[in-house]
Amino acid sequence: MAKILSTRQLTPITKLFVVDAPLVAEAARPGQFVILRVREGGERIPVTIADYDRAARTIAIVVQEVGVTTRLVNRLGAGDDILDVVGPLGTPVEIPAGGHVVGVGGGFGAAALLCLMRELTARGDRTTSLLGARTKELLILVDELRAVSTNVELCTDDGSAGHHGLVTGRLAELIAGQGPGRPDHVIAIGPEVMMRAVAEATRPERIHTLVSMDPLMIDGTGMCGGCRVIVGGESKFACVDGPCFDAHQVDFTVAMRRGKAYAAEEKLAAERLAAAGGR
C-alpha cells in the first residue's frame, strides 16, 4: 500500500502522481520501473519511475490511460492509496559519461527522461531533451525537463509548438550538426513505432542508441517470461535484463506483435469498465 501525496493532470488522459514510497525512492535509479496494482483481482502493470526524491522519500510516476488499470489509477487522487507498489525493478540505464546525450521522449514517454536527464546533466554530460507530441497540449513536463537538461527541443505533428514534424526529423537534423549538434548517445522512450524510427535514424550513423521497452508483464521479477523481447536474436526478459536495450538489436516487429496478444481481451475489459460507469 502506498499513499498518493499529490497529483497533477498533464493532459486529458495523462496524470502525474507523487507517491509516498520510502524504500523505492531510496533504491531507485533512472530507467527502472515499479509494478502497481489498484484493486483486489486487479492486474499488475509496469510503470516507469519518472522521478524520485530520496529526502522526501517519494517517487513520481506518470500514467496515461490505455487500458482498464491505467484508467482506474487515474481516478485516484491525493490521499488515496495505491493497493500495491513494488520496485524499483529492472536494470538501471548505463550511459558512458562525458558525451552529448539526446533523450527522445514521445508523448508521455517524456516523463521517464526526468530523473535520467537530471542525473546525466549533474555529472557533467551535455543533455538534450527532444520531446514530441501530436499537438502542443500533449507535450508534458517541458518546464521540468528544461530545468534538468542542457537543451530542450520540441516537435509537434501539427506545428503548434517547436519544430513542425516528427522527433525523428529533428533528430536527423541534430545528427547532421544542427541545433545542439550530433549526439554521442541517444535514448528513446515512447511508442514502439517512434522508438523503431529512432533506431533506424541512428543506425546508419552507428550512434549508440537505447530504447526503453514496455512489453506486457505480470510479476516483473523474471518469473513468468511474458515480457520476452528479442534482442540480437536472443530472448531477453525486459523486466530483469531491461527494460532498456540496444535499439539496433531489438526486434520491433516481434515486440509489436506480442504487445497485441491480448488486444481482444483488453477491448472487452475496457467496454465492461465503461458499462460500469467508468470512462
Partner: peptide, 11 residues
Amino acid sequence: YTFPEADTPVK
C-alpha cells in the same frame, strides 16, 4: 480464470 471479473486475461 474469472476474467473479466478479475482484470488479468488468460486464453
